[in-house]
Amino acid sequence: MPHPIAPQPLPDDHDGWAELAADASAPEKNRRGAFERLTTCIEGVARRVSVRFAGRRREDFCAGVLGDVWEVIGRFPAGANFEAWCYIVLHNRWTDLTRWEQRRESQSLLGHPEPSAPDIRAALERGLDSAAIFGDDDLREIRAWPLRDRVVLLCLASLWRKVPDDEWQGWVRDHRAAHGTPASDPFPPDSLDRGNGIADQNALLARELDLRRNTLSVILHRGKVRLGVLRYVRDLMGPDGGRP
């Protein structure tokens, strides 16, 4: 009688946990559990990056790092050192953050101050009935955003309809392949439009995308700058908000 196959031993270090979290063929529960064991390491690397480049811990950077690393954990190469790999990922994330801050500052110097959240919200409400879609420049800008930011921010801003449908559906499929969410298909569900304001939208997206509320808050914080760069949004804001 053949002997039963012994279960594979679970990893007991950061590198092994990262390999399990990166394994798309592993059960989602196992992947999530392995990733949770990396939390302390990821947060420690984030503090190192923040202190090295800013001289202090920056909460707006550190608050979103777990989501940033989870989004790319599938790319972790087997046999690599997780802490060193994580440092590269978060250094790239830091570079992305400072690039957006520099762009915001240059816009201010050019006489286009950063728009406020209420100004952006009012402009977006004016554009809800518009059939116009994003132009090529705006699409190139949006494609450079992290995948999760694209999906969450465009839903919260009711701008996902401004992306060509085949491209939007491709982003949703990519998100589902990487994270196992969203649950609804098609996404976003009609109930997103029926929510009573940002709080309801946040709650729905947090459930659909299995995100923590603080991760949504970080995406929203970064999103004001990102939305303000788009020509589509600037045009909705009128002459004072438009770019030359």
Rank of each mutant, 00 (worst) to 15 (best):
R75I: 04
G74M: 10
C62M: 13
W100Y: 11
L153H: 09
E114L: 06
F35P: 01
I219T: 03
K162I: 01
W145L: 06
V172A: 00
I142A: 08
V172R: 04
E208V: 02
R234I: 10
A78E: 09
H179V: 15
A80E: 10
S50D: 03
V72M: 02
S106M: 08
A157M: 12
A22K: 01
P77N: 12
R212V: 05
K162G: 13
G55H: 11
D96F: 08
R52L: 03
G241I: 06
V229D: 09
W171R: 03
V218E: 04
W94D: 05
L124P: 06
Y87T: 10
L153D: 10
D15K: 01
I42G: 04
R212P: 02
G228V: 12
R222W: 05
I88T: 08
L10W: 08
R176F: 05
I5M: 13
Y87G: 11
R99P: 00
V163Y: 13
G170I: 02
A18F: 06
R31K: 12
L139M: 15
H221W: 12
F134Y: 15
H175W: 00
A80K: 08
T98S: 06
L124C: 06
R126M: 09
R231N: 14
R140Y: 02
A18H: 08
H221I: 06
D235L: 10
P77T: 06
H175I: 00
R148W: 05
P146W: 11
S130M: 09
T40H: 14
V229T: 09
T40K: 12
S50M: 06
D15W: 02
G16R: 05
G241M: 12
H14S: 04
D138N: 09
